[in-house]
Design a protein around this nucleic acid. Sequence first.
DNA 1: CGAACCTCCTGCGGGC
DNA 2: TGCCCGCAGGAGGTTC
Length: 279
Amino acid sequence: MPELPEVETVCRTLRRHVLGQRIQALEVVQPKLRWPVDVPSLQEAACGRTVVAVRRRAKYILMDLAGSNPPVTVVAVHLGMSGILQVVPKGAPRRPHDHVVWTLGAKQIRYNDPRRFGSVHSFAAQNEAAHPLFAHLGPEPLDGSVFDGAYLYGQCRGKNRCIKQLIMDARVVVGVGNIYASEALWRSGISPRMSARRLSRPRAALLAQAIVATLEEAIEQGGTTLRDFADANAQAGHFGQRLKVYDRAAEPCEVCETLVRRIVQGARSTYYCRVCQKA
DNA sequence: CGAACCTCCTGCGGGC
DNA sequence: TGCCCGCAGGAGGTTC
């Protein structure tokens, strides 16, 4: 499942392939995604325009497209659970679950998503901040000017909910998905079941650092082990990264050998070490 | 404010 | 071995 590091890697690969290229055509094979694709809007926002930037906000991949009226439009792609963006030669055989296809010269960008939990939106760049998808989003975890121990501690004040659910709340901080939430909590020695309001200032700082370090390491691994994530021969996966607790129920904790435990919080699996992680 | 549940969908794993 | 059932999961939404 694409989490922030995977999305960042896709972004970087996409940037390499399509920056400066002009979009000639758009084909929507399957408009029924997480939200129905607005085909006319997407058409107008993309066709005849030039890719001037590829960015990431939370887990959205954003392509800035220059043209006239409006001068810049944005295409926002969310990969959901099983989505992938591939850059392939125009003539490459179509695969099952290729839902949206952009043609740029001899290349195509193809949005492929078996489960269709992802989405494709478009809007004028000037409307981005106010767009319903983005208006409520918290800071980027890798934006050190906002997200740090003091910020996280502030967000925890008076919150009577488990710390794991708090760090997965996009209003608090974006891009911390189920996998990295478990990993960062293990790394900082904090129980996922702990109430946010009881987290001390120093431990909030530890957790913030752990979130940043876990994501940065994963991005680095994504860049080295799966550089071609968005290329024709892409393989989705966990980037070969060695996860410490996630999906390792009943396996020994690498620090203390206690068997990793799986619990369910907010209908999602949480993995942790009862000995290393304390409330 | 927060918990619980719903919705979208398909691949895959467990059970038989 | 093969088939079928049920679950997982990002994220916005609703209800209590």
